[in-house]
Each structure stands twice: as C-alpha cells, then as structure tokens.
C-alpha cells in the first residue's frame, strides 16, 4: 500500500513537505500555545494573504511575496498592540481583514485567472514544487537556529514577561522576533494546510503535547512528532478517499485533539482507578 503511494514523485515530495513543515510547526506552535498568542498567529496568517496577492500581481513566486508581507504584518501587529495603546484584538482584527483585502484587490487587478490561488488558501501538499521544498528547508533551519540561540530568552518571555524585563531583557524586541518566527512558520505551513487552516496545525499538536510535558524542549519534540503524524495520516487518508489533503490533515488533528481531551477527562474523573 505505502509502496504504491510513494511510487509517485509528487507523493514523495508531499511527504517531505509534511515532515519538514512539522519541524517548524511543532517548535513555534509550542510558543504559540504556552504564550497564548493563537489569535495573533491567526492574524499574521490571514494578513499574509495580501503577500500572495502582491506576488501574483508582480508576477513572482507568491512565496517570495508572502515572506516580507507576513514579516511586516507580524511587526506591525506586535508594535501596535505593545506601544500604541490599541487593544490587541482590535489591532489583530484590523490587519486580518486589511491583509486579505489587499490580496483580493491585487489578484483582481492582474488580468487572467489565478489557477492555484485555492491551494494557498486551503493547502495542496500534492503540488509542492521543489523550489518551495528548498524554501521550507531553509526556513526550518533558520527557525531552529534562532530558537536554539535564544532558548533561555524565549522561555523567560513566554513564562513571565515582567520577570524577564526585570532581569534586563529587551522583552519587546524578543516578542517581535518571536512573532516574526511565527510569520515564517506560516509561510512554511502554507503549502501543507493553507493559510486559512494554519492556526489549527500550529496549536493542536502543541496543545496535546503540553498535557504530558514537563519542559518546553520536551513539549517541542512531542509537538513535532504529533504534527508529522497528523500530516502523514491526513495525507494517506486523503489519497485513499480522494479528498483535499490540507482539510483532511486538519480533521485528523482535530479528531485527535478531542480524543486527547476525552482521555484526560476519563483519567482525571474521580472514579478512575490508578490516580497518582
């Protein structure tokens, strides 16, 4: 069965994309979950659609439009909510919609039909070109390097930003950098599940991992493995059932999320034996 699937080159590419993107997704998703910035991440992801539109309009690979656009969105949302006394959810909501509007206008201005637009919105892991694979790998390495170098600082601002500030850390700069890493992760995930559904795959593996982890590195490793598991399961199911791959991956992840919480409820209920 599996051999049959991987006889196709596009399936091998899809598998590689799924595994590579799981790395960024599990590591950055861990920060998103413990720092409770899921809504911000969703905002950055949707604003990134503007970058796809700009990319189309300029006739370049949309991924090259998305990277600067989503980084700018991350910085703008972060600065606006930290410095300008704008309520964070207002800042996020504004950018969310404005980014998408820019994308729609740009795509409308470009004559002709935008054929694979749908795949950026909802993901199409089966059509990942090798240029995008290299890009994903590069961004993975960048994210890994930054997180490795700044692990103690990121832990400090995630746990207790005020204590981090008292300890002399530049917390705003570190927070903005963290948002930029989220923006790059969105770019990485875009091909797999699309920008509309990125937020689910960014949060679900990390949220499940948190239930059984005692440290951030432990949680990251588990989240990466879970993310890879969801992606591969979803990919396989979508091949069997001939349905959209991105949506299937999200449904697998969502189903496991419910299962994990059901398991937790059963385990924590007073009647369950073996409570420690």
């Amino acid at each position: 069965m599996l051999q049959e699937i991987f006889a196709f080159e596009f399936m091998r590419n899809a598998l590689l994309a799924a595994l590579l993107s799981s790395v960024a997704c599990g590591i950055i998703g861990t920060y998103v979950v413990v720092k409770k910035i899921g809504f911000i991440s969703g905002g950055i992801a949707h604003t990134a659609f503007g970058g796809i539109g700009v990319g189309y309009y300029l006739g370049i690979n949309p991924i090259l439009g998305v990277i600067p656009f989503s980084l700018a969105a991350a910085l703008a949302i972060g600065l606006l909510s930290k410095k300008a006394k704008v309520a964070e959810d207002t800042a996020i909501g504004t950018f969310w919609a404005v980014g998408m509007a820019v994308g729609v206008i740009c795509i409308g201005l470009k004559p002709g039909y935008a054929p694979d637009l749908f795949s950026y919105l909802f993901g199409n892991i089966l059509t990942v070109p090798s240029f995008d694979l290299w890009m994903i790998m590069l961004l993975d390495l960048l994210i890994l390097a930054v997180v490795w170098i700044l692990s103690k600082e990121f832990l400090a601002i995630s746990f207790d930003e005020e204590y981090a500030a008292v300890s002399g850390l530049k917390t705003t700069a570190l927070y903005l950098l963290m948002l930029c890493l989220i923006a790059l992760t969105v770019v990485v995930m875009m091909r797999v599940v699309g920008i509309v559904m990125v937020i689910a795959l960014l949060t679900i593996p990390a949220a499940i991992a948190r239930m059984v982890s005692r440290s951030l590195p432990g949680m990251m490793v588990r989240a990466v493995l879970l993310s890879a598991f969801f992606s591969i399961c979803g990919l396989w199911l979508s091949f069997l059932l001939d349905v959209a791959s991105g949506a299937t991956i999200i449904l697998v992840a969502g189903f496991c999320f419910l299962l994990a919480h059901a398991w937790r409820l059963v385990r924590l209920s007073p009647s369950a034996p073996g409570l420690s």
Binding site: V34, K36, L155, F159, S167
Partner: peptide, 26 residues
Amino acid sequence: LFFDREFPISVRDLVLMGRLSKKKLF
C-alpha cells in the same frame, strides 16, 4: 498568581530563570 501554573516547567528550570540577569544575550 500572575502567571500560568499549567506552564510546562520544572522547579529547576524555573529557578534557573533567576540567573538570567547574570547572563548575556545568546
């Protein structure tokens, strides 16, 4: 009461954070 008690961190790593002010960036 000001932080998340569900945060996945051990006592050791929490206390280690107290060394932050003695360390340089990176």
